[in-house]
Computed example of a mutant assay.
Amino acid sequence: MFNYDLHSHSTVSDGTLTPSDLVRRARDKGVDVLALTDHDEVAGYGAAVVESRRVGIQLLAGVEISVTWGRQTVHIVGLDVDPDSAGLVKGLSHLRDYRKWRGEEIGRRLENAGFVDAYSGALEYQQGDLLTRTHYGRFLVGVGAVETMQDAFKKYLLRGRPGYVSGKWASMEEALQWIHDAGGVAVVAHPARYGMTRTKLRSMLGEFIECGGEGLEVVSSSHNGNEIQTMGQHAVQLGLAASRGSDFHDPGNRWVELGRLPSLPKKCEPIWERWELGRHPRVPQTANR
């Protein structure tokens, strides 16, 4: 049985490994099929697919798109997308423009809260083109304001905290349109992490399905055993395929590792049964962006 890890990040967004290093680590950790799913960006796929061919691992082009739903941010993973799709590239470009402003605004708010040079400090942790809350979290840990990334988010970066800036992302309909225009399948990422009531979660999933959504990330490093079973039940009841992904960012986080995930619950239909692997095997134009 193949080891699928369909959610991972590189330095192109907020991971700490380059796309090539990420692929090599996935191979070394026993992953057979990896999806590179950087936030609102597909530029890492070119280097990653070259390395995947060299080391012998199946790579899927993917993306994690930020969506505003019901005044809350949720993430939709697109799997097996064509990274050169004009609609996808254009849509993601708009989100990155907003991310740039948001990154600067978080810095301003943290500086108003007493953190000198928060913006420039966060930039020191940025390795790609995107400045994210994760980079600010690393900055806050680095200056000793908190001990862990989790504390950084809880104390400074979540709703109601000094560095919080509300997201104005894509709509559910827009995100799924971009993914489908690119020939991919859409998956709701780490659904238990949003802290929604059952009623609210089913409402969100209902809109996702109405827009053509296909999958639910049942197994995630964000989910405990009970949450995996609960999300598996939602997937079965709603006819959604089940996905499996570590949401790997950093080898320094010993709690999250590529490929180190439980199996899907038995009654779930694996998402990988819904597409043909290797449909986009070429090195895309995005490799040169």
Results as ranks from 00 to 15, higher is better:
residue 17 L to E: 02
residue 56 G to K: 13
residue 22 L to C: 02
residue 70 G to D: 14
residue 27 R to N: 04
residue 95 L to P: 00
residue 63 V to Q: 01
residue 97 D to Q: 12
residue 14 D to N: 09
residue 42 V to K: 00
residue 96 R to N: 14
residue 8 S to F: 03
residue 12 V to C: 15
residue 84 D to H: 06
residue 9 H to C: 06
residue 109 R to G: 12
residue 105 E to A: 06
residue 79 L to C: 05
residue 26 A to H: 01
residue 26 A to G: 03
residue 91 G to S: 01
residue 40 D to A: 02
residue 49 V to H: 11
residue 85 S to W: 12
residue 73 T to N: 10
residue 112 N to L: 14
residue 7 H to Y: 13
residue 89 V to D: 07
residue 79 L to I: 15
residue 25 R to Q: 14
residue 102 R to C: 11
residue 9 H to M: 01
residue 103 G to A: 11
residue 13 S to D: 04
residue 75 H to K: 01
residue 106 I to E: 08
residue 105 E to L: 12
residue 115 F to H: 07
residue 78 G to Q: 09
residue 15 G to E: 13
residue 7 H to D: 10
residue 62 G to N: 10
residue 25 R to I: 00
residue 30 G to D: 00
residue 74 V to C: 04
residue 9 H to R: 08
residue 108 R to W: 14
residue 21 D to H: 12
residue 70 G to Y: 10
residue 75 H to C: 08
residue 114 G to E: 14
residue 14 D to K: 12
residue 64 E to H: 03
residue 99 R to L: 02
residue 111 E to M: 07
residue 26 A to C: 13
residue 62 G to F: 02
residue 45 Y to D: 07
residue 115 F to R: 05
residue 80 D to Y: 12
residue 79 L to W: 05
residue 10 S to M: 08
residue 55 V to W: 07
residue 11 T to G: 07
residue 99 R to S: 00
residue 45 Y to G: 05
residue 17 L to D: 04
residue 39 H to Q: 01
residue 82 D to P: 00
residue 36 L to Q: 09
residue 98 Y to F: 15
residue 45 Y to L: 14
residue 110 L to G: 11
residue 68 T to P: 00
residue 53 R to Q: 09
residue 94 H to T: 14
residue 54 R to N: 14
residue 98 Y to D: 00
residue 31 V to W: 08
residue 112 N to G: 14
residue 110 L to Q: 13
residue 12 V to Y: 04
residue 75 H to Q: 03
residue 53 R to K: 15
residue 25 R to G: 01
residue 101 W to N: 07
